[in-house]
């Protein structure tokens, strides 16, 4: 079962079998029929940036995976989560940071690294796969217990207006 770490504890994730997060840029060049592409997009919901939430026909799934166009959707604590192919790492202890960097150096070919400031790193798996980002973050957690190692999640939570907005009545003072 997939999981990630928060505050040092494992948070389990349930895979949403019927929904996928689609990278619309990758979808545009994926080797699938135009009609399927249109059908997928017609029933999609916008997530964030280039990502949409959509049902994907099983016949198209392999092609979309090959084009790195799909990411799995997870559920946890009443939210839907999508792990993007990015990991943020923070570490201020010099020795742990040295060991982290050594671990990353061994994977230079498969992980792209940027370090905006000392001890704050962003890792991107070359595969473009959110599942791999989740695995990298978990491995770092289990190996080094860094101050932060977490895959980038898009989260879909309940709109705070839900059940409240609909019942708000247009109203004026004095009943006007």
């Amino acid at each position: 079962m997939p999981y990630f770490y928060a505050a040092g504890k494992r948070v389990t994730l349930t895979v949403e079998s019927s929904l996928w997060a689609l990278d619309t840029e990758a979808l545009a060049v994926a080797l699938i029929g135009e009609s399927i592409r249109k059908r997928i997009l017609a029933n999609s919901r916008r997530l964030r940036g280039k990502y949409v939430l959509a049902h994907v026909p099983s016949s198209a799934l392999e092609s979309l995976r090959a084009a790195h166009a799909v990411q799995p959707v997870y559920r946890s604590a009443d939210a839907m989560l999508v792990a993007l192919p990015e990991v943020r790492v923070e570490e201020s202890r010099p020795e742990t940071l040295r060991r982290l960097r050594a671990w990353i150096d061994l994977r230079r070919g498969s992980i792209e690294v940027s370090e905006a400031e000392a001890g704050r790193l962003t890792l991107r798996p070359a595969s473009g796969d959110g599942v791999e980002a989740l695995a990298i973050a978990n491995e770092l957690q289990e190996e080094f217990t860094p101050e932060l190692a977490e895959a980038r999640f898009i989260r879909s939570i309940e709109d705070p207006n839900l059940n409240l907005k609909a019942r708000i009545r247009p109203h004026r003072p004095n009943g006007a």
Binding site: I154, R155, S156
Partner: peptide, 17 residues
């Protein structure tokens, strides 16, 4: 956050942070 029109707010944890 931005509403998706289906009763959800969409947030990106990195952007929020």
């Amino acid at each position: 956050a931005r509403g998706d029109g289906n009763g959800h707010w969409i947030l990106d944890d990195f952007d929020t942070a």
